[in-house]
Design a protein around this nucleic acid. Structure first.
Lengths: 243, 243
DNA sequence: TAAATAGTGTCTTTTAGACACTATCGC
DNA sequence: GCGATAGTGTCTAAAAGACACTATTTA
């Protein structure tokens, strides 16, 4: 072990440290299209490009805490499904200085998404197109409301691609889908969420069977209102006790 | 936005930064038992406790680079399957100072594992017991070679539990199992790896069918030697081209 | 009653598990 | 031939897909 290594272990404070930031993938569905909220950079580097909202991690706050704070400050959201995604730490990912970014995935219901859009005009809803099937992974495309392809700042396209990959992977063994739905929802809405994220069409009877067999759904007995056809029953996400 | 927040965004250098470290879960199988390599702390805090090998991330190295360096410095390994696990950032996880730790999972073949053990006497091979079934998650138990239950330093027990959970989750859709096997291996050895990580017994014909159907295995035509019974065919991990 | 979607019954296909059987080696 | 493990054939069970059918609402 060299003396430098020893000192590094012994007194890390004597060495230059990277900055630590969190970046948020604020994701929702608009008309069954995965959509992310972006903010325009007005400074170098990548001035004019669209970026994920983010912020530095304070010395006295946890990573989860920093993500929740950024969610509050940049989107005005108090509550949302928030989970750590991956940590990006390439040396040159930010040309100004060394920044290690812990990426978080925030899932918003359609209602919450629209509320954020209305309250924070600086945020742009950009449609996400995932060209790969299944969990292959790879680059994705981001479209502005005017259908222009956007080039994201920094490595944010990688972060977003990681988010979509993760989401697809977790979809059927976790409860993430419910984070995109209101308290009460129909099975058709649940299937729409799955189809939107997977980018495929699913078999209706099979989908219902599997979802109901999981024991995560509680039928309310109530039905949706205002439809011009047979109203669907409303369900609630609730893990069965006897499991 | 408060002035403090503005400054935080504008000039993060003016604020105190967490240190960034990497911690490595060096995992291998010893007689089909998941085993992790630990190093004994000789300083406060948690002096005398066993910990995951780790080190600080230099200002000029990537996270992956830092993990590879620690692997080299602390275990003398040049190559191993290395993947980022999760980033741990609770404010009080290290009582000395604020450290954000990016955990990595390193998978070693049995041969590599024993080589490390021989070359670095400071490392202790601790058997991992996973008390939960499937991908439930939860705490795990770590046993010394003398069968004493070890209490790990810091939040390293959480890191290790995360590693086992991740490993189980990835096992059958990724190629991690092959990182624990030598270049050439039998189907029985592959099944042993799966069974060791999952903690269950698997059905032999079904396992073979699934593995062969994946198209990741290339039969070599060669067979294992020295067995006192019918020698098994040796396979190599190789993704088929026509996929 | 027409239109539209909710919800289901049932057949087929696929996949996984059970289990016994054959195959092949050293001794 | 015996013992031991490799490797397979085949039946059963479970899960997923296909597809048409019934059910229920508004207009």
């Amino acid at each position: 072990m060299t003396e430098t290594d020893f000192l590094k272990d012994y007194d890390p404070g004597a060495f230059q440290r990277p900055s630590v930031a969190v970046d948020l993938v604020l994701l929702g569905l608009r008309e069954n299209q995965p959509t992310v909220l972006l903010i325009k950079r007005d400074q170098h580097p990548h001035s004019g490009r669209w970026a994920l909202p983010g912020g530095f991690v304070g010395i006295d706050e946890s990573l989860d805490g920093a993500a929740a704070r950024v969610l509050r400050e940049k989107a005005g959201m108090a509550n949302a499904h928030l989970e750590q995604l991956y940590t990006f730490g390439a040396v040159d990912r930010d040309p100004r200085m060394r920044i290690v970014s812990v990426a978080y995935l925030a899932l918003l219901t359609e209602l919450a998404f629209e509320a954020v859009l209305g309250a924070v005009p600086a945020l742009l809803p950009a449609a996400i197109q995932v060209p790969w099937a299944g969990e292959t992974g790879g680059p994705i495309t981001v479209l502005s409301p005017d259908n222009d392809t956007l080039t994201l700042a920094f490595d944010h396209a990688d972060i977003l691609a990681t988010a979509m990959l993760r989401l697809r992977g977790k979809l059927d063994y976790s409860d993430v889908a419910f984070a995109l739905l209101p308290e009460l929802f129909t099975l058709r809405q649940l299937q729409d969420v799955h189809e939107a994220i997977l980018g495929t069409v699913l078999n209706k009877p099979a989908f219902r069977r599997r979802q109901l067999d999981k024991g995560w759904l509680a039928a309310t007995g109530a039905h949706e209102a205002g439809a011009a056809y047979r109203p669907a029953e409303l369900y609630r996400f609730q893990r069965s006790v006897t499991n």
